[in-house]
Design a protein around this nucleic acid. Structure first.
Lengths: 200, 200
DNA sequence: GTCTATAAGTCGATAGAC
DNA sequence: GTCTATCGACTTATAGAC
């Protein structure tokens, strides 16, 4: 029988994961240190290693938790809905995710940039399957003349690229925009971009 | 008087910069080690430090060299040319850059992801100035009715995001596409995307 | 707190090019 | 023979883990 976690365990595990997200998303796996994470979590390093047996295990826990969050917006793309609206709504969901979970976006970006050593298999299986499935839906819409005929894979890449840019390149976006807030303008632009692109 | 570099110096400095690009672009500044770089350059660590006084100095040299390469395509955007063609040509130049210099793109991405500690000032000055200047040109085109009226800053962001995605997220792109080559499809998609968006 | 590995950077000595 | 280039061994600090 596994014992239910105590309140202290629940709190500390959550603190470690949040601290790990802070540090891993900024420095990548190799650049992050347990000292930084322990510090950010308000725990001693030995205490941190009482909850997670290794640096790797914290990172893995974060990536696993992230995967669902990250794929959910695409899973929700509905083949029976209005084509243009469905795609734009997906892109807007993704932009909201970037705004509300920028650390998660950067964790993902770091992992991919470094060659995705820990999730390459998942990319080739789960992610590819999901994307191919949704790409088929988009292709069918194009064939029915409901949207313009564009390559569905590159359409999806463009949505990922554009929306995640605002989280991953946040510093650069803000440096260029100055005082102007990024996300309102991005949302309007995104609407226009895909409405015009997809118009049959 | 500074002496001209010997052939050995030229060769070794080039080897170190190339090796540094390999390692920094994959692991980020903190994740990279001098041993890795020395190994990749075919030199001993002391010998490497004979040419560059520190890890930091290699990284700085790479970023400085990169900056021009990175901004040149935007500088070439010509206010007297045909508006739609100019913008699409800029995007295509940027895509070519991603294809031919993926390590440079990832070095940049790593630096920004980590909060751009070494280039934040450059972003706020040189980059912002350049972008604002080109954004003004694009805005003027829109006011003259030569292109559709879209936010020029977000237009530029979208070009950066989409084109750099193929270098920075290379592993993910290839995992999803399988055997299909990325860049041909990306180039076609990009043409369609901006032609439709900018059509007045 | 301790242990062990690995990191960045130094030093002194020497091999090799011109 | 002198200056350039190289390297093994070392120091100090910091890393992950117990």
């Amino acid at each position: 029988m596994t014992k239910p976690p105590t309140r202290i365990q629940t709190r500390n595990r959550a603190a470690i994961l949040s601290a790990g997200l802070d540090v891993f998303s900024q420095f990548g796996f190799r650049g992050a240190t347990l000292d930084q994470i322990a510090d950010a979590a308000g725990l001693s390093k030995p205490n941190l290693l009482y909850y997670f047996p290794s640096k790797e295990s914290i990172h893995t826990a974060l990536l696993e938790r992230l995967l669902d969050t990250w794929l959910d917006p695409l899973k929700a793309l509905d083949g029976t809905g209005d084509p243009v609206q469905e795609i734009i709504a997906y892109a807007q969901r993704k932009l909201t995710l970037s705004r509300d979970y920028p650390r998660e976006s950067r964790l993902w970006a770091n992992e991919i940039l470094q060659g995705a050593p820990r999730i390459e298999d998942t990319l080739r299986t789960d992610l590819k399957t999901l994307v191919d499935e949704k790409a088929a839906i988009i292709k069918a819409w194009a064939n029915d003349g409901k949207i313009a005929d564009v390559d569905p894979h590159h359409l999806i890449f463009s949505i990922w690229a554009f929306t995640q840019h605002y989280a991953d390149f946040d510093v650069q976006v803000r440096a260029v925009l100055g005082e102007k807030a990024p996300y309102d303008g991005a949302s309007v632009f995104l609407d226009t971009l895909y409405a015009k692109l997809l118009q049959p």
